[in-house]
Amino acid sequence: MVENKLSAEAVHKTIKAAFESFECKDNNTVDVRDISTIIYSLGCFPTQADIHNFIAEVEEDQTGFVHIDKFLPTMTTVLLENKYPPIPEDRVLQAFEVLDREKKGYLESEELTKYLTQEGEVFSPSEMDEMLLAFADPEKNHIYYQDFIHQLTIDPDK
């Protein structure tokens, strides 16, 4: 029982740190538009529908803000129950390789933007900008997917 309490405390600490990195007014709230990024930063990969449901549960009376008091218990449950697990690395690699028809080992930013904003569960423009800022080679504007794929996935043996 003590072990569960310690793990819950560690989870709370991790969640608070992620939340606080997006807090902009020093009032224990974040903009609702940052929720998906916070969730992703915690190693969870929900669908867009999951994100919308999560936000509906934690948003402060449709103000566009989420308070830590609502976010913390909900996100704790998500993490402890492993509700939004990431996809294993080999499956993500296969997806990138399908998109990389010429087998170059990279995708051009424009190409990836087209795929991720027009197909399937689309990224918003701000999510796409964040991804390109984090992963695109600034000189060549290429995304060398094997260089960062481990950041998007889990090792199923762990």
Rank of each mutant, 00 (worst) to 15 (best):
H142Y: 13
E111Q: 09
I149L: 02
I38L: 05
K13H: 08
E110D: 11
E97K: 07
P138I: 12
Q151P: 02
V98I: 06
A56M: 12
F22Y: 09
T14G: 02
E111C: 06
D129E: 00
I87F: 01
I68A: 14
K83T: 01
V58D: 09
D34H: 08
F148D: 03
G105T: 07
L99I: 12
Y145V: 05
Q62E: 15
P138N: 12
F19G: 01
T47L: 00
G120R: 07
V58K: 08
D100W: 04
A10Q: 08
I51G: 04
R91K: 14
D26A: 06
L72E: 06
G43T: 03
P88I: 05
T14M: 03
I143C: 15
H150T: 02
H12Q: 10
A18V: 05
L133I: 08
A134H: 00
I38F: 05
F65I: 12
E139I: 06
A56Y: 10
E110P: 03
D61N: 15
I38M: 12
Y84T: 01
H67D: 10
P46D: 01
L107D: 09
M128R: 06
I38G: 00
R101N: 05
F71C: 10
M131F: 15
R33N: 10
G43F: 00
F148W: 12
R33S: 07
L116M: 15
V78G: 02
H12M: 04
H142T: 00
T63I: 13
E81Y: 03
K70M: 09
N4H: 12
C44R: 01
K104F: 08
Q48W: 02
E57R: 14
I38Y: 04
L112N: 08
Y145K: 04
A17V: 02
C44P: 02
A10T: 07
I149M: 02
S7M: 14
S41H: 07
D129V: 05
T113Y: 11
A134E: 01
V2K: 13
I55Y: 06
E97N: 06
I35M: 15
E130C: 09
T153N: 04
F22T: 10
Q146R: 11
H12L: 08
S21F: 07
E89Y: 07
Y144V: 14
G120A: 03
T63W: 09
D31K: 02
T63L: 06
T14W: 01
Q62G: 15
A134P: 00
R33K: 03
R33T: 01
P73L: 00
I55R: 13
N82Q: 04
I38V: 05
I68C: 12
D100S: 11
E81Q: 02
A49Y: 10
F148C: 09
T47M: 00
A56K: 14
T113I: 09
D100G: 04
D69N: 07
D157S: 11
E139P: 04
F65H: 15
V122G: 05
K103Q: 15
I87W: 00
Y40I: 13
L99H: 12
Y144I: 14
Y145T: 02
P125V: 04
L93Y: 03
K140P: 08
